[in-house]
């Protein structure tokens, strides 16, 4: 596809929903390349241009510029306090929930400004799902957990079917099909996390953000979730924050390495993007000394 037309007939369902984010015609206000795959490159889902995040006066993330590609798994790695979770939460405007958080710079999602004045964060979060560090199922039945998203967003279709499809996609169906009416709190941690992934898939998002999804899980559950990510990659763009470098190396296509710069005077840690490249390159032949030190385990 050399260039994409922006008439309604040729837009995919996701594009149409993206266009619905902001009123008016879906003009690519970015450089025009945002929706254009370009020569040999894959389509860009997110384009960050000088994104900085402040909590009150403290600068948490400084001047990040990067493209996140369609149907890639992009890993954000780096030591604690380097702002990778903060950056992740910008992508679906979860940072709005922290009153003191301020985002500057430009953040394009399929050519739409995520922080544009007319953008409703609720619409953004419908398209960009999120899985949290600690499994956070609702205190409801397994079925109701999965059905919650489709119900609130008013999705059409047979709910039983939607729930089953989501649970199958999350490789959970066979384990829970006989106890859909039971409370989700009775599941194991790994199952709960896969339920959270199923819950996220059920709303048919375009992107799934994962904030250290395996940090609270045992190795076997972790392996299952990593397998799952490989399957989900066929359909979704995934951005994952992880502390586990092996995990980043195993699952991701691209890796962004962040580090924290400490301001001696105020003791504020500010995250900066050091290196962003294909995962093989970052792990085998990093271009920056700090990246090399981190991936070889010399610090962090």
């Amino acid at each position: 596809m050399p260039s994409r037309q922006t008439t309604n007939e040729t837009l995919s369902s996701t594009d149409r929903r993206v266009a619905a984010l902001a009123p008016g015609p879906p003009v690519n206000i970015a450089t025009g390349q945002a929706a254009d795959p370009g020569a040999g490159e894959r389509e860009v889902t997110f384009r960050l241009e000088g994104v900085s995040v402040r909590y009150g006066e403290a600068l948490a993330v400084k001047d990040v510029t990067m493209d996140i590609h369609h149907k890639d798994i992009t890993a954000l790695i780096g030591p604690s306090g380097c702002g990778k979770s903060t950056l992740l939460r910008c992508l679906n405007r979860m940072n709005d929930l922290i009153p003191s958080a301020r985002v500057s710079g430009r953040l394009w999602y399929h050519g739409e400004d995520v922080y544009g004045p007319k953008v409703d964060p609720v619409q953004v979060r419908k398209l960009i799902g999120m899985v949290f560090q600690k499994p956070n199922p609702f205190p409801k039945s397994i079925y109701d957990n999965v059905a919650f998203g489709p119900r609130t967003t008013g999705m059409k279709g047979d709910m039983d079917e939607i729930v089953e499809r989501a649970l199958r996609s999350a490789a959970l169906w066979d384990e829970v099909k006989d106890r859909l009416k039971e409370n989700a709190y009775g599941m194991s941690g790994g199952q709960q996390q896969r339920l959270c992934i199923a819950r996220c898939i059920a709303t048919e998002p375009d992107v799934i953000l994962m904030d250290e999804p395996c940090s609270a899980l045992d190795p076997i559950s972790t392996a299952r979730i990593e397998d799952l990510m490989h399957e989900l990659k066929e359909q979704y763009t995934i951005v994952i924050v992880t502390h586990n470098m092996q995990q980043a190396a195993r699952v991701s296509d691209r890796t962004a390495f962040f580090t924290a710069e400490v301001d001696e005077a105020t003791d504020v840690r500010t995250g900066v993007l050091v290196e962003y490249d294909r995962t093989e390159k970052v792990f085998s032949n990093p271009g920056d000394e700090r990246t090399e030190n981190y991936v070889t385990g010399r610090f962090g």
């Binding site: 979060r125 949290f132 609702f138 205190p139 919650f148 609130t152 819950r199």
Partner: peptide, 21 residues
């Protein structure tokens, strides 16, 4: 608050989050 965040992250509005979760 993880329940609130889980609900909001699914695209529920604040009122839906309060009334249903």
């Amino acid at each position: 608050s993880s329940i609130r965040h889980g609900s909001l992250a699914l695209g529920a509005t604040q009122w839906q989050t309060v009334s249903r979760q």
